[in-house]
Design a protein around this nucleic acid. Structure first.
Lengths: 197, 197
DNA sequence: TCAGCATGTCACTCTCTGGTGACATAAAGG
DNA sequence: CCTTTATGTCACCAGAGAGTGACATGCTGA
């Protein structure tokens, strides 16, 4: 019988993982470290070394989780064109990322870290992202230049969300209120539809 | 007669500014601090406090410089359409940013810093960017939705360049060799032209 | 019950950073 | 020549972080 005991390795292990996510989401990667995570978890940092072998191990463990951070993708309605599907997915991704500080911080970290140091998490996130898209796409076939167009969309969306989180705007266009975002969503939708027409 | 003396406030002042740019470009914002800059400049950090009042003052001083970091924008050929102009400018911006680690690190810093802490530099960069674009545009008039389209272009370009610098790719498309970039440039150009047709 | 182990805590070292006061000396002016 | 000031250097402090060895104690099985 495994109840909640004062000493419980599994529970502590899980608590540390949860604390790591909270710390990253709330404090950002700049303040992410063994001390901060242990503080958040309310236990000693020594346990991070014992149970995960250090920060690297903790990051690897977080990587196993990353697929769940985006939630479920929107399901493709059977009758839609590729353009409509792409517009819906771009919209869904933008809103999901906007509501997810943890994922924002991770993306930022990947951009800021020395190359290679964040490899496990980067790969896990990349794979999760692909799966998210693949799950949304039914058996729609892609136009030839969809790869580039979608890359541009994803890139722009990420930059918008990251910039909005820190400055409330990007390149002049305001991204503070919901109305601002609705404006952007509408514009982006028509832009995607035009590109795929 | 102001020659190069062993003691020369102006020269030291300039050396510190230069060292600040080098440090940021080479080490990134994570390692940017009074110690690192002083090391780079080969003098004591005390002088940063004395001549700039601290790191904040040094950043403000860098802000005065920022307009020159992008170099001269491409001049608009008189007979071009807005779409061609936009495609040229996007291409020029992408290549200029790609060749400019200092600007890359600054953008990344702005995205990662706590809101407000980088205000002087952010404003200076924003202003410089506007001037750069304004200098390139002659008396072309913008289509109605050019604001959104251009924002998407700038956002995507920045994300591409930042991601390429750290991982050599973005969302599956490789961005390592010049050939990769040429491919992206061609695709982006046709995409911009289509959007503005 | 009690010995042994797993879990958890503490204290410490080492290094790095930002920041400051005290000191040395080159330059300039009387 | 000598005083004064500006320029530069050094030594130090407090704080935070990574990492580690020693210790305390709850849990478990014999």
């Amino acid at each position: 019988m495994v109840e909640t005991r004062t000493r419980n390795r599994e529970a502590t292990h899980a608590a540390l993982l949860e604390a790591a996510k909270i710390t990253l989401a709330e404090q950002g990667f700049q303040n992410f470290g063994v001390n901060a995570v242990a503080r958040q978890a309310g236990c000693d940092k020594q346990l991070i070394y014992r149970y995960f072998g250090g920060l690297d191990g903790l990051l690897e463990a977080m990587g196993g989780d990353v697929a769940t951070w985006l939630g479920a993708p929107p399901t493709a309605v059977p009758g839609t064109t590729y353009g409509e599907w792409a517009a819906n997915l771009a919209d869904a991704y933008m809103m999901a990322l906007r509501a997810n500080p943890l994922l924002q911080k991770l993306i930022l970290w990947e951009l800021s870290a020395a190359p290679g140091t964040l490899a496990p998490l980067t790969q896990a996130r990349s794979r999760a992202m692909m799966q998210w898209v693949a799950a949304a796409r039914g058996e729609l076939e892609m136009p030839t230049d969809a790869g580039l167009i979608n890359a541009v969309l994803v890139a722009a969306i990420q930059q918008f969300v990251l910039s909005a989180a820190v400055s409330g705007s990007f390149s002049g266009l305001p991204l503070r209120e919901d109305a601002d975002w609705d404006h952007l969503r509408a514009g982006l939708r028509s832009l995607v539809l035009r590109l795929y027409s």
